[in-house]
């Protein structure tokens, strides 16, 4: 995970990826990022911002300016536990949590995350399980994620599993919904995928941050 102080660099205008902002604006909840006041209320309300490399405020600022690489490779987007505290507090009515989801989607879509990092692996395994059986089973989900990310953790996690099992709180059997219902579910998801026309949404015609940024002025240096 890139740490901001090590990777801070000047960006030239042509290095900026402006279509990132357009994609976020096209997402329900992200429409208002251009009205962000940069007040920092989101970050101060966030219970996780102290662990983040970029606070939500910085992320929104960077999205607007086209710092796609920094945003998508940040640790912060994976830390968001989607508690919606920022969304409730934002004076500009920005769905900060939805912005975070959108950034996670972009990172997963473009394969930009460390291979053994558990958060995106969990998300992908969750999806696979849901599509396969219509419901999720936390025991198999956790087991799969641990095997894929940190198998050694099984050594420290099994006592909890045992305690849950002893109390009849572990479902080792199948939790799948009836076959016909599962077929329905899959068909429904396929129809949506077809109507979405691939993962990328058509960007809206908006111009973002037209004024020259500090980067251009420092070009000579």
């Amino acid at each position: 995970m890139a740490h901001p102080t090590f990777f801070k660099k000047v960006k030239y205008e042509k290095e900026l990826e402006r279509d990132l902002a357009a994609e976020i604006i096209a997402t329900p909840g992200g429409e208002k990022i251009l009205s962000c006041l940069q007040c920092g209320t989101c970050g101060s309300a966030c219970p996780l911002s102290v662990y983040m490399d970029y606070t939500p405020r910085k992320l929104i600022g960077m999205v607007r300016e086209g710092f796609k690489e920094e945003v998508v490779t940040s640790f912060a987007i994976w830390l968001c536990a989607s508690c919606y505290e920022c969304t409730v507090r934002c004076p500009s009515g920005i769905g900060v949590t939805e912005v975070m989801y959108a950034l996670k989607r972009i990172a997963i879509r473009e394969g930009i995350y460390p291979r053994h990092f558990p958060v995106p692996v969990l998300a992908k395994e969750f999806l696979k399980m849901l599509k396969g059986s219509g419901r999720t089973n936390e025991f198999w989900l956790v087991l799969r994620v641990l095997l894929k990310t940190a198998p050694m953790k099984l050594l420290t996690s099994w006592p909890l599993g045992l305690r849950l099992w002893q109390r009849g709180r572990m479902c080792l059997g199948s939790t799948r919904i009836p076959k016909a219902a599962n077929e329905d579910l899959r068909r429904m998801l396929e129809v949506i995928e077809a109507s979405t026309g691939g993962p990328l949404k058509s960007p809206l015609p908006v111009t973002v941050g037209a004024q020259p940024s500090g980067g251009d002025l420092k070009k000579a240096a």
């Binding site: 989607r105 998300a123 992908k124 849901l130 993962p199």
Partner: peptide, 15 residues
């Protein structure tokens, strides 16, 4: 069916 929790939407949105 599973509601997707807060996880599904980090991979696919409309679905």
């Amino acid at each position: 069916n599973c509601c997707g929790a807060t996880t599904y939407i980090s991979v696919e949105e409309n679905q």
